[in-house]
């Protein structure tokens, strides 16, 4: 891997970025879509952190929210449905020097990509994951998603959704190696920003569920919460979110919660109303998979050549018997047990 160190040093001083430096095409989301709020918060974050656009990658799957990378002026990867996380993991493994963000929807992450989600938590690779959870399939025009509340009428559940909604926070907090879980709502942008900032600064897999309004298919779903600040409970703590004075004035329903407390986090995660907003769990000591695997090491050709010659030696038959003390090894075989699938 070649990282232009000198380039980094030269650019350090004149490399201030403005918001426009992160703004890609004009978003084609609906007016009032929560994705717009997330985009604004993320662009602000990139500017405030002065992220180099060329060193930053936004990865997404398929769905309304997965158009996100197109609206950033960084590198972006708009892949296939459900697979944003494994793509992002491959990127991070090959290039730990890159800032990796993932934008995924409730269908993308919690349905078709659910297997990857569980394992991504366990890998704990250093990336910031935004779950844009609007509880509905939008791009395919209003089908129930795994996070749709029971009883929700949609095109595939005309008599109401049959099952209880899956709770992304409790699922994530139940996975071994979980290291950062937070919840935000799109209608409190300053808190959304603070949470995304904390997520970005956490080293590990930062999972932020963002409850997001869909003005097209579920225009009134969150109205009661929107108009009643008491139906949001802000999680605050000196090790968690610090609530600004103006926010504190409006959202007076608050809970002191120390994000090191995993059991407390799980208990809070199971509360649905009022909506807990803030950092539920943070553990900076969980090892990152890319570090366990020593990603990003330099691989000079001499190293590869030496390794290869060592391996060749193990299996070589020399024409001159004098050399011959290395010989082919026995390969693994059914005698050692084969995994058949």
């Amino acid at each position: 891997m070649v990282i232009a160190t000198t380039d980094c040093l030269l650019r350090m001083y004149d490399d201030r970025h403005e918001l426009e430096d992160y703004q890609g095409g004009v978003p084609r989301w609906c007016t009032g879509c929560g994705d717009n709020a997330i985009l604004a918060a993320v662009q602000r974050l990139c500017r405030d952190e002065n992220l180099r656009p060329e060193k930053t990658v936004f990865v997404s799957g398929i769905g309304c929210s997965s158009r996100f990378p197109h609206y950033m002026r960084t590198y972006g990867f708009h892949g296939i449905h459900g697979r944003a996380l494994p793509v992002a993991e491959g990127i991070k493994m090959a290039r730990p020097d890159l800032n990796v963000f993932v934008n995924t929807g409730d269908g993308d992450c919690c349905s078709i990509g659910a297997g990857h989600w569980i394992h991504a938590v366990r890998y704990n690779m250093n990336m910031t994951v935004m779950l844009h959870d609007n509880q509905i399939y939008g791009l395919t025009k209003m089908q129930a998603s795994p996070t749709s509340p029971r009883g929700l009428r949609s095109n595939t559940t005309p008599h109401g959704a049959y099952l209880e909604a899956l709770q992304p926070l409790t699922v994530t907090l139940g996975v071994q190696n979980v290291s950062f879980v937070a919840q935000a709502v799109d209608w409190i942008p300053d808190v959304l920003y603070d949470i995304l900032s904390a997520a970005f600064h956490h080293k590990g897999f930062s999972f932020v569920r963002i409850i997001q309004r869909c003005p097209e298919w579920l225009p009134t779903m969150w109205e009661p919460w929107l108009h009643d600040p008491e139906r949001v409970v802000l999680l605050s703590h000196e090790r968690g979110l610090k609530i600004a004075a103006d926010i504190a004035k409006i959202y007076r329903n608050r809970l002191q919660h120390d994000p090191v407390n995993l059991n407390g986090a799980r208990e809070i995660a199971s509360r649905l109303d009022p909506i807990p907003v803030g950092i539920l769990y943070r553990n900076p000591d969980v090892p990152c998979y890319e570090e366990l695997r020593h990603a990003g090491r330099l691989r000079p050709p001499q190293l590869i050549k030496a390794g290869l010659e060592t391996e060749f030696d193990k299996f070589t038959i020399w024409p001159d018997e004098k050399h011959s003390r290395a010989s082919p090894r026995t390969t693994r075989s059914a005698d050692d047990g084969l995994l058949i699938s």
Binding site: M1, V57, V59, F77, G79, I80, R83, L85, P86, V87, A88, E89, G90, I91, K92, M93, A94, R95, L98, G115, H116, I118, H119, R293, H294, A295, R297, L298, R299, L303, I304, A306, G307, L308, T310
Partner: peptide, 26 residues
């Protein structure tokens, strides 16, 4: 030993997507 990584993914699709991500960025 030569700086490479074998990643055992959670499934076949993830293995392919992981390789694609690694290729894309490296």
């Amino acid at each position: 030993k030569v700086g490479g990584i074998v990643h055992q993914a959670e499934d076949e699709i993830a293995a392919c997507a992981f390789a694609i991500g690694a290729s894309y960025a490296g």
